[in-house]
Amino acid sequence: MEPPLLILAGGTGFLGQHLRRNFTRAGYRVRTLSRRPRHPDDLAWDGRTLGPWAAALEGAAVVLNLAGRSVDCRYHAVNRYAIVRSRTDSTRVLGDAIAACRNPPALWLNSSTATIYEDTIGAAPANTEATGRIGRGFSEMVAQQWEAEFNLAALPRTRRVALRTAIVLGADGGALPTLARLARRGLSTPHGHGQQWVSWLHIEDFCRAVEFLVAHPALAGAFNLCAPEPLTNAALMALLDAHYRPRWHLPQPRWLLEIGAFLLRTETELLLKSRKVVPQRLLEAGFRFRYPTCAPALADLLPQLP
């Protein structure tokens, strides 16, 4: 009997590599759509146009799309265009490919982001899928266009799930290795005023949540993928500080972060936006987190860092 097939688009990065290993261990055959195929089972695509790769979707159990240009850049016009188009183009062409299948995939999961919600200040309620306040800035509009493209195709035989993913913490990729490296050097102080909320998720719980959504065919629509306990930036940096105990502490006021972001060709929004999000739908569906709070998650991950 053939193993179930999972088509993974944009699967060569941090999240994609973990998902590939996770679903391979679970008994799936995983084929990755990539601009630079590396493995015999990889399929070449450009993320914009239909091609021979589309035939592989026929009869697949799952299509999982993680494709999208990194937001770790300056938000000038060229990069803004690339950020939006890399997400909407890849989503559109996957929808076209699924619509053309005679035996379409049973499930299509598509990346989105917890950044779709507006800044949450102070003690304001956290954003749930039902009550979250959608923002109006550039990053929030990117997420809205992304999800709109995802929901546009007429696919009556394919279940769709949008993954509104928060910051995923892992020892081998994402934001944590950079934060840890800086914390060792004394930059374990709050970013700006430090009261901005951080929604996060351990990489193990990220993979488990995706697997949970695959395994429960009644679940569809948007899901917040984040731990149930967000924390402030100051609290996060305090946890890093307690682990590394640097010999000195360098303040990180907003003006200094702006200079640093300019020199590193990135944006301070990645550190200063207040994301207070909770996974209401996952919890109501019965998902249980292994790392619901950040201290145990960091205690697991930080010793794994080089």
Rank of each mutant, 00 (worst) to 15 (best):
N151F: 09
F287L: 12
T165D: 03
N22F: 15
G132M: 03
R159W: 05
Y28G: 07
P279T: 05
L152W: 09
G47N: 00
S188V: 00
R254E: 14
A215Y: 06
E269F: 07
F23D: 00
R185A: 15
R136I: 14
R164F: 07
V198M: 14
N151A: 15
A100V: 10
E284R: 12
M141E: 14
P4S: 08
R35F: 03
L302Q: 03
R290M: 10
R133V: 09
R265W: 09
A295F: 02
K276C: 02
G194E: 05
L283V: 08
R92C: 08
N110A: 12
Q196L: 10
P3E: 12
A242M: 02
Q144P: 07
I259W: 10
P190V: 08
L5A: 10
K273F: 01
A154S: 13
P104F: 03
T165I: 13
D300H: 12
V63Y: 08
D96Q: 15
A209C: 14
R164V: 02
G27P: 10
G59E: 08
L271F: 14
L182P: 04
R160H: 05
G194K: 02
L263M: 13
S70D: 13
A97E: 00
G27C: 06
G173Q: 05
P125F: 02
E118K: 12
G135W: 03
F223E: 01
V214Y: 07
N22E: 12
